[in-house]
Design a protein around this nucleic acid. Structure first.
Length: 886
RNA sequence: GGGCGAGUAGCUCAGAUUGGUUAGAGCGCCUGCCUUACAAGCAGGAGGCCGCAGGUUCGAUUCCUGUCUUGCCCACCA
């Protein structure tokens, strides 16, 4: 039976993906009797394009899901996308800019309409790409953080938080662009290094002569100062703490406070405190209950709090303030200083920390359970070290500002009454104020932080707040697969919301993937735009190759710098699998049935050996999968298939496969077939397409699960300990060493492959002679040596042969021609190498510290090795002497 | 500034919770092979003071300390 000479990954990908969809194999049935296994996808941004990080993350999730399907679970992989507030709004606003429009030209409703249109047209890009990758998500359930159900969940949770007293409004400093009149998120502020001036200013004491000198880069903000701060242990300022100083220009009395935040080494060690215009001063001010004096209008001109400076632009104001201080003799000096200035990512205008009213969640009480859940092991991070990252955040959690001054997102279900000023928070849109029944109410303009809806993802996607059968069957989920950089933003908050709303953890395991970095070692991120498109490498090498590469590189808790030649290497591996199958299939006829139960007595050593090795491979693959050690599982399969099954077993069976003996032929076909088929099952989670394609070829030849439509539903193999034969494996290992030895000598001496040489074995061990008799026929095929076995204890030294030693047995390869010089060289080299080892070990054994203190077992082991190596060394030396004496 | 990692072959990376064979893989390199599954292949080979310095130990690439280099997260310096 012939199959195509080349595997075509692109054709295969389309064909089988459609096949799986047509047979509904990704669908999770909540009514199933099977054990549940569930994963919710980390929802990619709708604006997103699949980058290599997604490819890694989703390949691993897919590997887990396919493994669990095969292992008999009912698997739900819940897919969906995130509305990604600011990112998405920005994309659409940029498009508007091309039409010379701003969002203000459109207004809120029209802009949101535009964004929905955009989402409809482009929002599925990443979903298509996930399919391209082979993801086995239950696509019929695909969710979106702003779809109706998720929005209802968001609203319900918000109202509950409010009712339970976890929400409040408070002042908060946001990044403000005075030109765009908009708030900016932290990553929309771009910092640049700049030369600045460092002004040293005298603040006179209120109770008489003298002053304290403060240093600042922003003298104009002093109009809003409400304190001076020093370090509590600073000897220079001990007398000052608790006193008052006069704020120059404003002539206001302000206190001197002590706070360990102040750096004694920096500037003068005395800090002017402007709570309304600096983030640190803001925190400081909160700790000391300082007044927040806002001196700016929203275009960064000075407001009424700035006294005579009202109306001035901030730069103009700075000049005037400095000039006035100089006039009054309060300016001690101006230094140059390097510092960093934050600018608006759009217009580069220097941003201003700006005080505004925001909504907050009180985090401390809500984070108590999440802390316990990880401490007591209900949730565990893999690798475990990431728990530290989690703890460090949870233990020092600050209140979460959840309102955002943009339009795209979940608008807060909060209404303010224009008459009584009370707040109405409601599950349904209210017509009147809940407090005074006035119809004169207005809804909050702000929307919620994107992470708010993400935090509900594990249960909102399953239909909460309704009591659904999905929730009953699949919540909590089994594992979350994500990257470490969102442990704070996302993982911790999901745990919080799960425990608060569902009274149960959202997932048991958190597998933190390594971070795929770009060629310069930089993190790949959505916003940086430096992501490599994995679609390209999929098109070049095939999706299976890309997936296998990612899996085998996915060691725990490390970074991955992806090199393309690696993918090429594993593409060759998929090619190898294909060709191994071709070899088997070429030997069977269409419609032939492969025997499955071969009586043990018909098996030859090679058959028993590969079956034994297969059990180890199954064991390693399973252990790797269960421990999230994808690299170990895939490595074990790679080694088994290429270097055991292909390199050895398929070579060993060729004489029987192509021989006349039909019984022997049937035996090797059966074993080769079964081992291959078993390997395909284990490989399927990693390389689903090629394994499905080959499986479909193999299926009619005798795979027992006749009702199995796809390899996706075939059983994942279990190791069969009765198949393991250690003594046989040891024997074969010895056989392989003999082969290596002969080939090595042939190679080193450049004996042409076509030349048949004579090999003799010197051994005084009866067991070894039996061994040789059994294995010799295969040696002749693999090493091109004479058909007649020459072995015994009384062989005379051979002057025209090279010797290699395997377990004390001399393997003598006779020379076909003049190769003496090369052989002497080779022998010398080997003796030298062996001598070094023997010497080192001898020293170790001569050391009474070692023999006295190391465990008996280790010493004995060392001694045996020493004896063996020493005698081998002597054998070689004898041969060398023989040659050089000639 | 705080925290967490990482430095192993020419390149990209495993290995180390249990210290003890001659430290591995892919790619690259060298030699020889188009042997009827595969040249995307086969056989053989070269290449490593496991960052540096101390310490613990009979023994350290592995454990500890320091140091240099480097990456990431958080806070960003009035």
């Amino acid at each position: 039976m012939d199959i195509p000479k080349r595997y075509d990954p692109a054709v295969s990908r389309e064909k089988w993906y459609q096949f799986w969809l047509d047979h509904n194999l990704f669908h999770a049935d909540p009514k199933s009797e099977k054990q549940p296994f569930s994963i919710v996808i980390p929802p990619p941004n709708v604006t997103g394009k699949l980058h290599i990080g997604h490819a890694l993350n989703n390949s691993l999730q897919d590997i887990l899901c396919r493994y669990k399907w095969m292992d008999g679970y009912e698997v739900l992989w819940m897919p969906g996308t995130d509305h990604a507030g600011i990112a998405t709004q920005n994309v659409v606003e940029k498009n508007l800019a091309k039409e010379n429009l701003t969002r203000h030209d459109l207004g809120r409703e029209k802009l949101i309409e535009r964004i929905w249109e955009w989402k409809k047209e482009y929002g599925d890009t990443i979903i298509h790409q996930l399919k391209y990758l082979g993801s086995s998500c239950d696509w019929a359930r695909t969710r979106f953080t702003m779809d109706e159900g998720c929005s209802r969940a968001v609203r319900e949770v918000f109202v509950r938080l409010y009712e339970d007293g976890y929400l409040y409004r408070g002042n908060y400093l946001v990044n403000w662009c005075p030109r765009c009149h908009t708030t900016l998120s932290d990553d929309e502020v771009e910092y640049t290094d700049a030369k600045g001036a460092f002004y040293h200013i005298h603040y006179p004491f209120a109770d008489g002569a003298g002053h304290v000198t403060v240093a600042t880069t922003r003298p104009e903000t002093m109009l809003g100062d409400t304190a001076v701060a020093v370090h509590p242990d600073d000897d220079r300022y001990q007398d000052l703490i608790g006193k008052e100083v006069i704020l120059p220009l404003m002539e206001r009395r302000i206190p001197v406070i002590a706070d360990s935040y102040v750096d004694r080494e920096f500037g003068t060690g005395a800090l002017k405190v402007t709570p309304a215009h600096d983030i640190n001063d803001f925190e400081l001010g909160k700790r000391h209950n300082l007044e927040q004096v806002n001196i700016f209008n929203d275009d960064a001109t000075i407001n009424e709090n700035g006294g005579v400076y009202q109306g001035l632009d901030r730069d103009e104001c700075r000049k005037r303030v400095v000039a006035d201080l100089k006039t009054k003799g309060l300016l001690e000096k101006i230094e140059e200083i390097d510092h960093r200035v934050g600018g608006c990512y759009r217009c580069n205008t220097v941003t201003e920390p700006y005080l505004s009213l925001q909504w907050f969640i009180k985090m401390k009480p809500l984070m108590e359970e999440p802390l316990k859940a990880v401490r007591d092991g209900r949730i565990q991070f893999i690798p475990k070290q990431w728990e530290n990252t989690y703890f460090s955040w949870v233990e020092n959690v600050r209140d979460w500002p959840i309102s955002r001054q943009i339009w795209w997102g979940h608008r807060l279900p909060v209404w303010y009454c224009n008459d009584c000023d009370e707040i109405t928070v409601s599950r349904t849109d209210p017509d009147v104020c809940a407090h005074c029944q006035s119809v004169n109410i207005r809804q909050e303009e702000d929307v919620l932080d994107t992470w708010f809806s993400s935090a509900l993802w594990p249960f909102s996607t399953m239909g909460w707040p309704d009591k659904t059968e999905e929730l009953a069957k699949f919540y909590p989920t089994n594992v979350l697969v994500t990257a470490h950089d969102i442990i704070y933003f996302w993982v911790a908050r999901m745990i919080m919301m799960g425990l608060y709303i569902m009274k149960d953890i959202p997932f048991e395991d958190v597998y933190i993937t390594a971070l795929v970095r770009d060629s310069q070692g930089r993190k790949m991120s959505k916003s940086l735009g430096n992501a490599i498109d994995p679609i390209d490498v999929i098109d070049t090498y095939g999706v299976d190759s890309v997936r296998f590469t990612l899996a085998i590189l996915a060691a725990q808790g490390r970074n991955i710098n992806l090199a393309e030649d690696r993918i090429e290497g594993y593409r060759n591996f998929t090619n190898k699998i294909w060709n191994a199958a071709r070899l088997i299939l070429a030997a069977v006829e269409e419609g032939e049935t492969i025997e499955r139960d071969i009586p043990p007595e018909k098996l030859e050593w090679a058959d028993g050996w590969i079956l034994s090795r297969l059990q180890h491979a199954i064991d390693a693959a399973r252990k790797g999968m269960e421990a999230y050690k994808f690299n170990e599982a895939s490595e074990a399969l790679y080694q088994f298939i290429w270097h055991e099954y292909c390199d050895w077993y398929l070579e060993l069976i060729k004489p029987r496969l192509y021989g006349e003996d039909l019984v022997a032929q049937a035996v090797v076909k059966s074993i080769a077939f079964q081992a291959l088929e078993c390997a395909l099952r284990m490989l399927h989670p990693f390389v689903p397409f090629i394994t499905e394609e080959l499986w479909q070829f193999l299926k009619p030849l005798g795979i027992p699960e006749e009702d199995t439509i796809s390899i996706m539903r075939a059983r994942y193999p279990d190791p069969d300990p009765s198949r393991i034969d250690d003594s046989l494996e040891n024997e074969v290992r010895k056989f392989q060493q003999v082969v290596y030895t002969i080939r090595n000598i042939r190679g080193e001496l450049n004996i042409a492959p076509s030349t048949v040489t004579t090999v003799e074995f010197k051994t005084d061990n009866g067991q070894e002679e039996i061994f040789l008799k059994q294995y010799y026929p295969m040696l002749t095929t693999l090493c091109r040596i004479n058909k007649d076995l020459i072995a015994g204890a009384d062989l005379a030294p051979h002057p025209a042969a090279s010797i290699g030693i395997v377990d004390g047995m001399e393997v003598r390869v006779h020379w076909p021609a003049e190769v003496e010089e090369k052989e002497i060289e080779r022998l010398k080299k080997q003796i030298e190498q062996l001598n070094a080892i023997v010497e080192q070990r001898g020293k170790k054994l001569a050391n009474p510290n070692f023999t006295g203190k190391a465990p008996e077992k280790v010493v004995e082991q060392e001694r045996q090795r020493y004896e063996k190596e020493k005698s081998e060394c002597e054998q070689l030396t004898t041969q060398l002497e023989l040659l050089t004496a000639k």
